[in-house]
Design a protein around this nucleic acid. Sequence first.
DNA 1: CTGAAAGCGCTTACAG
DNA 2: CTGAAAGCGCTTACAG
Lengths: 355, 355
Amino acid sequence: MTSHEGVNEMDMITIKDVAAAAGVSVSTASRVIAGNPATSPEARVKVQAAVDRLDYRPNTQAQSLRSTRTNTIGLLVSDVRNPFFADLAHSAGQAALDAGYVTLLGNANERTDQQDSYLNTLIQRRVDGIVMTPHGDGSGAVADIVRRRMPAVFVDRTIEGLDVPSVTTDSTRGILQAVQHLVGLGHERIGYISGPLSTSTGRERWRSFAAARTACGLPEDAQMVASGDYQAASGVAAMEQLLSLPVPPTAVVAADSLMAVGAISCTRERQLHMGRDISLIAFDDIELFTLLNPSLTVISNNVNEMGRLAIALLLDIIDGRDPESVVLPSELIIRSSTSRPATAGTASLNQEHAK
Amino acid sequence: MTSHEGVNEMDMITIKDVAAAAGVSVSTASRVIAGNPATSPEARVKVQAAVDRLDYRPNTQAQSLRSTRTNTIGLLVSDVRNPFFADLAHSAGQAALDAGYVTLLGNANERTDQQDSYLNTLIQRRVDGIVMTPHGDGSGAVADIVRRRMPAVFVDRTIEGLDVPSVTTDSTRGILQAVQHLVGLGHERIGYISGPLSTSTGRERWRSFAAARTACGLPEDAQMVASGDYQAASGVAAMEQLLSLPVPPTAVVAADSLMAVGAISCTRERQLHMGRDISLIAFDDIELFTLLNPSLTVISNNVNEMGRLAIALLLDIIDGRDPESVVLPSELIIRSSTSRPATAGTASLNQEHAK
DNA sequence: CTGAAAGCGCTTACAG
DNA sequence: CTGAAAGCGCTTACAG
C-alpha cells in the first residue's frame, strides 16, 4: 500500500468474499443480504454467518450505482448557526432517519453562491431528494433542480412561481394575536423589525404585520419599521434605530428570534428593562430562548412539525406521488417580555420631565 | 417510467452521451473532464462544449466506485442544537469545502446508539475520513472505525487509549485565570457546575478546576460542585442545588455555555441579579451569548480553530501522513457576569438580618 | 431456489 | 494523444 492510496481501502471485504466464505454464488449472497424471499433457509444461515464473521458492510456506492437509489436526502439550511435552522435540521434529520434515509446536511450561510455550490454537489451525488430553505430568486442551481425534476421540497421559505411543494408557516394569525395582545396592554406605538424582503418569510411576515396594524386601528408609520437580515447584529442596529426616534415605540415585534436577541442586547445597553420599560415579541419559538432574561413572548411556528412534514412530503414525491403544499398556523405564546406600556408610568413622566 | 422508479433518474445524461456528442471516445471524454493533461486542445474544446451543452454532471457514485475516493468527510457532532457544536460544524464544514470535500454532517444527540448507527452509515458510504466528538468508552462502532483503520480525528473530546489523533482544548490555563479572577474580586466560595464525567472534557475541566482551586488556596468542598450534562436544563438544576446550600457560593464556574444559560435562568427566578448578586463564568465562547443579559465572562476555546485544525489533521491522515494531536490553549475573557462578591455588601447584610 | 452474465457510470492501465 | 477493454462492487432479469 503506497501512502498515496490512503489507509481506508485496505482489506475492504466485498460480497465476493462473503459468497466464497459461505460457499454460494454472489447472486445468492446478494439476495440473502437484501432480504429477498427467494432464498433457501440453508443459504440464509450460511450467508448470514459469513457476513457476521467477516464483519461485511455493503458498499453503498456500488449499491446505488445499480439500483439508482442512494437512500440519501440532501438537507440545505440557510444558516446552521441560527437556532431555528439547527432545530429544523435536527427534526428533519430525525424524521429521515426513521424512514431509513441518511441526511446530508449543508449550510448555505445565507449566501446564494454557497447554496448553489452545495446544490451542485447534491446533484452530482444523485441524492434521492432535497429539502431546502431556498434563497434567492430561483435562478442558478435552484432552477437546475427544478429542470431536472429532482424530488425537492421547500421548507420555511419558498420561491414563488416554482413548481416545488413547500411546508411553510402562515404568520397571519400569530402576528395578529401579537398586535392585539400589545394593543390590549395599551400600546399605541408598535415598532417592527423586518426580515429581509428577499426571503418569502420576510415578505409574508411584513404583510401580516401591516394587516394586523390596520385591523387594530393603528396608523401606518414608516418610521416604526426597521430592516434586518435575520442575524443578531442586525437586530441591535434595528432596535437602535427605533429607540432613537423622537417618539420611540413602546413595543416591538421582531421577525425572528436572533434579531430579537440583538434587540434585547440593545435595550440593555440603554439601561432599559425589557418587559417593563419596553415590550418585545419575536417570531420563532426557540427552546433555548425560553431561558433568556427576560423570557420572550413569541409567535410560535412549530419547527419540529415543519421538519417532519417536509420529509414526509419529500418521501411522497420520491414515491411518485404529487403532494400538496402544507401551510401551518402560528400562535402567540405569552411570556415575560411584554407588559403594559411605560407610557402611563415612569417613562412618559421622564419624557415630561425632560421637556 | 413507473411511479415506483421515482422521478429523478429520467434523462440523466452520462459520460457516454458527452463522448458521443463530442465525437470522441469515453476515455478521452473522461480525461478531459478530469483535467488529465494527456489530451489534445481539440479534444478539450469539443468535450467541454458537449459538457456545457448537455449540462453534464459526473455521477459521484460511479467515480468513487472506481477511484475508491469519495471526497466526502463524515462529521459527527454530539448535539447540533448546542451552539458550540453548531459553530464547530460550521467551521469544519467550511474548511472541508475549501479543501474540495463535502461534509456529511450527523447528529449523535449525545447518545451512543445514534452515534454508532451514524458511524455505520459512514462506514458503508466509504467516506474518506471522519471527524467526530466521540461519546462513550470506545467500544461499538468507534472500535470498528479504529479496527478498519479509517482515517479519523477526534475533536473537542477524545477517548483515551485509542490511536486516533485529536484536537482538544487544554482548560488548565483558562480555568486557572477564571478562579484567580474571582478570587481577585474577593470571592471565597466558588461553585462548579461540572460536565458529565463520561466525556473527556467533563473530566479534564473538572481536574483543572480542582487544581486551580488548590492553587488559589481555596478549600476543597464537595458541596460546591454540582453535575450537569452539557444541556441547559441541567444547568438550572445544578444552580438550584448550589444556591440552596446553607452558605451558597458567591460565584460559579460552569463547564459549558448551555449549562451557564440554565444557571442564569435559575438566578433570574430567584430574583438574583447576575453579575451583581452572584458571578458566573462559563466555558465555551459562543458569539450569540455575548448578547445575553448579562454578557458572560467566559473561558474561550476558539471553536473555529478547532474545526479548521481537525480537518487539516484528517487530510494529513488521508494523505498517508501521521499527524500529531493538537492541544489548544484556553483563555479568560472578562465581560459583565462577574463582579465583587455581594458578601461585603447587601447580600451578607440580608443574611445578617435574616438571622 | 440458484448461478452465470450483463450492466449501473465511471476510471485507468494497456497498446498503439 | 487516443481508443478498446477491463473492472470497481453491487443488483437483477434470465434461464434453469
